[in-house]
């Protein structure tokens, strides 16, 4: 199970590589809890997930993962300042409504934040827009009319928001099809993972 999770979600590998043994982790939009379970089994990470979907809550519980049912857009009021080493938001940022407020909450609750999201600036996305259609891809598998993604951004856009929120970026890994992208990441990367902290 462990390896298959990492294979199916390359951003998980990047996230996991940044999390030291025994850390405390809050995984926002944790889905079925597979990342938390992987981190627990491989790194003895102690953590909680936050999820809103009923079926995923039941699956998290089946996976033996601590999960709190809550809407991320209502904030992280259940969690105290600096109560986690890492707050993770994997492939969920683009579907949050109050994105800016949530970014502030992440650096309030976590010593560091780790976020992965699909890069809207990826050349295949740009090409589809140039050809006249909203992009549909493995990373963005929705039609414009049924997508939960309301806040898509490029790597540049994300970094501008971080600067605006006094968030210091500590690490960045850009990927495409499971491979690292070093050159022209905003054009050639389909997925990005960032590690950051509050600058103040």
């Amino acid at each position: 199970m462990n390896t298959s999770i990492i294979e199916s979600r390359p951003d998980f590998a990047a996230i996991a590589s940044w999390i030291p043994q025994g850390s405390s982790v809050l995984d926002l939009g944790c889905g079925d809890g597979s990342l938390l379970r992987y981190l627990r089994e491989t790194r003895e990470v102690r953590g909680y997930g936050v999820e809103i979907n009923d079926k995923k809550i039941a699956t998290c519980i089946a996976n033996g993962v601590n999960v709190i049912q809550n809407d991320l857009d209502s904030g992280l009021a259940d969690f105290e300042d600096a109560s986690f080493d890492y707050v993770i938001l994997s492939q969920t940022l683009q579907a949050t409504r109050h994105t800016e407020a949530l970014m502030k909450e992440i650096v309030r609750v976590g010593r560091e934040g780790i976020i992965s999201f699909p890069n809207f600036g990826y050349w295949k996305n740009r090409l589809q827009v140039m050809l006249g259609n909203m992009p549909v891809s493995k990373e963005l598998p929705y039609q414009w009319y049924d997508t939960p993604n309301v806040h898509l951004c490029t790597l540049d856009d994300f970094e501008i928001l971080c600067a605006h929120l006094d968030i210091r970026i500590l690490g960045r890994q850009v990927m495409c099809g499971g491979h690292d992208v070093q050159v022209l990441p905003n054009l050639r990367g389909s997925t990005a993972v960032y590690r950051f902290e509050h600058a103040a």
Binding site: R46, I61, N66, I68, Q69, E80
Partner: peptide, 21 residues
């Protein structure tokens, strides 16, 4: 119920919380 959850989180206890519709 969230108040209970909050107190457990504060004490870093294992807790899951489900809000059933």
């Amino acid at each position: 119920s969230r108040e209970i959850v909050h107190a457990l989180l504060h004490n870093k206890r294992d807790v899951s919380y489900a809000e059933i519709t």
